[in-house]
Design a binder for these strands. Structure first.
Lengths: 342, 342
DNA sequence: ATACAGTTATGAAACGTTTCATAAGTTGGG
DNA sequence: CCCAACTTATGAAACGTTTCATAACTGTAT
């Protein structure tokens, strides 16, 4: 009783062959109801629990997917992970989540461990600095999907928000309110994501023949806070600020409170990436909401198609974002305009 | 080249016995440097990667710890998981995170899967409704640590905030500001956690001979919002509100914005459980900050002691919380008092 | 009865490690 | 130079499944 019962024990108890027990437990149809019953009964009686390590060794399938993300505390990634876990477990898969803290070297270590654990596939959100050598660490044969921070020429299927369009739509919205001078605040300009958002922004600006600027506000919330506070105090400030991700948005809200700039009277604020608390700060912040559910569904689909060796139709999925209008965006006041022009 | 190299291949390449390769890779000291070098070289040459599934099958150790939490999107749990993952991976362990969505049945399913995957231990934050039958699902022999939502008589080691003391200190602080009528808003009164917070609250109230009430505001943010908005509009409202967890806090902030009650002029607000955004809403909310780092360290220690079969000194660890004073708490205004007394 | 084609059940091999009893090699003392 | 006492290397067994070739049943048509 001290040792866990194995399939062998079950086989003896039910007086059948070992292989038959395996068949029953794997739902093989070529076993007659009578026997099946006997086996199931024996399992129950012995309180048998399958050892999936042994199963994996033989079958070379772990039914495990590794998920590699920069940071689980970030709500965007946490939400994505939660959705992915639900989808995976519904399909009989377990997920192993590893975090990199934006450190490519650590990412490599973790990927190595996942490989050793024989995961069936990996869903990866690359670290800021290291997507180029990712294929080397992951390997060619490993099923893989790159999510969110896709690169220019990823060798794996990719899923992400349609950043160009999202930034374009957001900028168009600000322009439609009457803004003629808009700043896009970014913090990691060499990320492909950011490049795309800049592209969308600039296209809208160009079409409207307005004035658009890109401002790099640094890698931390505090850096962004400082940089944007300086911007807010500048008489030549824009009439609208578009923050390119939630770290920058956080810095902007801090800066707004530091400088007591009135939003949206003195300046409109539009955030890329929505999250719960944007509804609760005052004024509530308008935002571009990324299609997290859609991204999760597509990422899982692309992963599942690979692990079940089905062909993949579209390798690069782009999901559309949605504009959520709250209180932080409005038409620019003339006063503000004048100051800006001065 | 198409097949992955195994230890056998390495052994052949280095012209040593299979067992020797195993020894080298496990850092066994009884192998001479010369041989070790040969083996390591062969590994490199073949680009060998250990198959930990096979290792686990034989050694009956997976170096994997299951972490069972209600919800990964909740910042408190996400932070805890992040800390635990760091501690675990530093010790050569991998964590598998599963979420229950507060559903005890789903928790059971996930625990079953973790057992099948032969995890070495489990760190569990029980679901709201199901900690009583947990031992049945987890099993006696499984190393386990219960975190945060401990029960009255858990059979496993436990780690949690010292809720009684934290609530006591928070209430004392409000009393020290001069408040004589305080409401503690809770949402899951039968949770042991909540019971403890109520105990601490009531003790402080009793000692000060003040007026304290417990108000059950329901299980969702929306329910709390409604319930608290009603409270805020009530002329007989208290001069201070103490929210017992972050879900209720969220409801309170919504309700405050709905009713435009002035905080802290008309009412002080103190939150149990601090999180980043409490600094960014206006007024910034004072809070009891739970010692997440401490909890993670203790939980991991208790787990590690179990899996490495070391004796455990203190089975039930309670970590002290910290009061963070921001802008939402102040002395009650006389005007407010009068209204309240009327 | 007999042969034949389907169905069902069997049991040995295989998966890639770790473990451990034992063989082989090494050292030092008499 | 031999033996005891270590140290170091070996290789077979074991871990608990899945897989698959084959054996044992069925039932039907001759």
């Amino acid at each position: 009783m001290t040792l866990k019962p194995t399939m062998n024990d079950v086989a003896k108890e039910a007086d059948v062959a070992l292989g038959t027990v395996s068949k029953v437990l794997n739902g093989d149809a070529t076993v007659k109801p009578r026997l099946r019953e006997r086996v199931l009964l024996a399992c129950q009686k012995l309180n048998y629990q399958r050892n999936s390590i042994a199963a994996s060794l033989r079958s070379k399938q772990t039914h495990t997917i590794g998920i590699i993300i920069p940071d689980i505390i970030n709500t965007f990634y946490a939400t994505l992970v939660e959705r992915l876990e639900n989808l995976a477990s519904a399909a009989g898969y377990t997920v192993v989540i590893v975090t990199t803290g934006e450190d490519a070297a650590r990412a490599d270590t973790r990927i190595e461990i996942l490989r050793q654990r024989q995961v069936d596939g990996m869903i990866v959100i690359p670290s800021l600095n290291g997507s180029s050598h990712l294929p080397a660490a992951i390997g060619q044969e490993m099923p893989c999907v790159i999510v969110d921070r896709i690169g220019e020429d990823d060798p794996y299927p990719t899923v992400a928000t349609d950043n160009v369009d999202a930034a374009y739509q957001g900028t168009r919205y600000l322009l439609s309110l009457g803004h003629r001078h808009i700043v896009l605040a970014v913090n990691s300009p060499n990320l492909w994501n950011t490049q795309e958002r800049i592209t969308g922004f600039e296209q809208a600006i160009r079409e409207a023949n307005a004035r658009g600027e890109i401002r790099n506000v640094g890698m931390t919330v505090e850096a962004a806070r400082m940089s944007l506070a300086a911007l807010f105090r500048d008489e030549g400030r824009p009439t609208a600020l578009f923050t390119a991700n939630n770290l920058v948005t956080l810095g902007a809200i801090h800066a707004q409170q530091d400088t007591e700039l009135s939003v949206p009277d003195d300046m409109s604020l539009l955030a890329f990436d929505d999250f719960e608390w944007l509804r609760l700060v005052r004024p509530a912040v308008s935002a571009i909401q990324q299609p997290i559910d859609q991204i999760a569904v597509d990422a899982w689909r692309l992963m599942f198609q690979q692990v079940s060796k089905r062909p993949i139709a579209t390798r690069n999925v782009r999901a559309g974002a949605q504009l959520i209008i709250r209180q932080s965006t409005a038409a620019p006041e003339l006063r503000g305009r004048k100051l800006g022009v001065l």
